[in-house]
């Protein structure tokens, strides 16, 4: 009698586990990204730029990781700091997945954003962020490949200027494909869910 109870108990437990497993797999298969999805995914332009720590960042070496790219500049008064703050929240929310995600900031203002300046800027948000700079000749192909256009607008008479640039976050999947974009106003939890799904694919 006890043996029967154990048998049926085990059977019901196994059935429940199976239902939960199949349900979670089904949910994963039917996952809908919340960002803007490239259809079909494009090969991401493989660039090499100087990073904030004095090394070289090579996108081609990031296979197996999700790379989030944001183009901006250190003197930006609004969109860049708020976006990097949100990306810091993404990094925190990723938990154990964070070591498979790179968050990259690429300058659109190479004249002012020297590696030292970029270093100071990205470290203000997170020591894990990667800040990239270079010469205009090195950066132009990257901007073009990621459809980044920018324009300088002077303010005041002391030579200060603002840079108008797209406020877009690009997501490259572990296979090196450009998969998603978000507006800079995207919420951290939205980005986090999509990134985790990309890592699980």
């Amino acid at each position: 009698m006890n043996g029967k109870k154990v048998f049926y108990g085990s059977l019901i437990t196994a059935a429940l586990v199976l239902i939960v497993f199949v349900g979670s797999q089904f949910a994963e298969l039917n996952y809908q990204f919340q960002g803007s999805v490239f259809d079909p995914a494009q090969d991401a332009y493989k660039f090499e730029l100087s990073d904030h720590a004095g090394g070289t960042f090579k996108l081609a070496e990031q296979n197996g990781k999700v790379v989030l790219i944001f183009f901006g500049y250190a003197n930006c008064p609004d969109v860049c700091p708020t976006t990097l703050a949100e990306l810091k929240r993404v990094q925190a929310a990723l938990g154990d997945f964070a070591n498979r995600v790179e968050i990259v900031f690429i300058t659109v203002d190479p004249n002012r954003d020297t590696p030292e300046e970029i270093n100071r800027y990205v470290n203000f948000f997170s020591s894990e962020f990667i800040g990239l700079s270079g010469t205009i000749e090195q950066l132009e192909p990257v901007w073009e490949a990621y459809y980044v256009t920018w324009d300088e607008a002077e303010i005041g008479t002391n030579g200060d200027y603002l840079v108008e640039h797209p406020s877009r976050i690009y997501v490259i999947d572990p296979q090196g494909k450009l998969r998603l974009t978000y507006q800079a106003s995207a919420q951290a939890d939205t980005i986090t869910q999509d990134v985790i799904h990309l890592l699980r694919e």
């Binding site: 990204f33 919340q34 803007s36 999805v37 974009t181 978000y182």
Partner: peptide, 21 residues
Amino acid sequence: VSHELGPVFVPPESSASMRLD
């Protein structure tokens, strides 16, 4: 040229999609 509709960014001769949830 590339186009944008709110959060949807579409490069030239390409497609992008967004779920309305």
